[in-house]
Design a protein around this nucleic acid. Structure first.
Length: 317
DNA sequence: CTAGGGTTAG
């Protein structure tokens, strides 16, 4: 037997206990305990993906040791599936137990704060972001941009956005959406100009926001330009949302003919486009056409709200 | 093993 071979066999048995890929022994003081956490985290992840958030919470409650990933999974799960308060509670518990936040923690928590109106809490978490040095993280930064836009603090959002070391389409779209919701249409078009200046190509969602801005502001010329561009790039054929936005734009601007043209070009009419075009017919006093379209829609087995039809019937009487 | 952006009107 060669010297050292016994040692090798011991090492081989040890590898059975080897930590999962990407981990080293140095990062686990107690391999067995840590492995337990790892596999339970995986299970929690599966449960949340299957939308079984309560089961995930039960498993979480039974765990004797938890790490930041355990908390991140549950925080984002509760945030996504409608339990924002629980998400914030878990975040508080996590911090008070001395478990350090990571990027995903901040990103989930701040998104919850922004979307559910916990603005004061969101600003507090922003302080933690700064003191722990996560301010330049793209995900964290975009959740902060979203938070301040929802608060209506446009200047702060601009500043954070400008300071981001890199940007992707999601952040640009968050900005566009924020300005649209706040009715800051000028800012929105400034941002669009900046996109073009930096050579960022908008996607279908960006064009939805831009066209809706033209719709709300009745910017006929600008909307037509967008329409041309969108046709050239090919979004109308592939994106129902864009096509619907065009129908709404023309009907808002009172250009009935173009609204109808835009409707006819929609590849697969969904409920929304039917709603839009029926309301356009009704608004233009083409009541019988509206009703005819409504019955055609039933023929295609489309389900919709009946309000437009009732509106049209009311006008006839 | 974890984090982000969606259409209508009423």
């Amino acid at each position: 037997m060669r010297p050292g071979s016994r040692f090798l066999s011991v090492v081989r048995t040890l590898t059975i206990l080897a930590p999962p890929k990407g981990k080293t022994f140095a990062s686990c003081c107690d391999p067995n305990l840590q492995l337990g956490v790892y596999y339970k985290n995986e299970r929690i992840n599966e449960l949340i993906k299957g939308r079984r958030i309560q089961d995930a919470q039960n498993l979480f409650d039974q765990m004797s040791a938890r790490d930041s990933i355990t908390y991140n999974l549950l925080i984002s799960g509760h945030g996504r599936y409608g339990n924002p308060k629980q998400a914030l509670y878990l975040y508080k518990e996590m911090v008070s137990q001395g478990i350090k936040e990571t990027g995903p923690t901040f990103s989930s928590v701040i998104t919850v704060c922004g979307n559910e109106g916990f603005y004061a809490e969101g600003v507090q978490v922003h302080c933690r972001v700064i003191s722990l040095g996560f301010g330049l993280n793209l995900f964290v930064g975009s959740s902060l941009v979203n938070l301040y836009l929802r608060m209506g603090l446009v200047d702060v959002a601009w500043k954070l956005f400008d300071q981001l070391p890199q940007r992707n389409l999601a952040v640009w779209n968050l900005m566009l959406n924020g300005f649209l919701e706040l009715g800051k249409l000028e800012e929105l078009f400034v941002l669009h100009g900046q996109m073009r200046w930096e050579g960022v190509e908008p996607n279908g969602l960006s064009f939805c926001y831009l066209i809706r801005a033209c719709c709300n502001g009745r910017f006929l010329d600008q909307g037509k330009q967008l329409h041309c561009h969108v046709i050239k790039v090919g979004w109308v054929e592939f994106n129902d949302f864009v096509a619907n936005a065009l129908v709404d734009f023309y009907s808002a601007c009172g250009i009935f003919i173009d609204a109808r043209k835009a409707f006819l070009l929609i590849p697969v009419e969904d409920v929304i486009s039917w709603n839009s075009i029926i309301s356009v017919y009704a608004e233009n006093d083409l009541l019988f056409d509206a009703i005819e379209l409504f019955s055609r829609m039933h023929f295609w087995d489309k389900k919709t709200f009946h309000s437009f039809l009732f509106g049209a019937l009311g006008l006839i009487q």
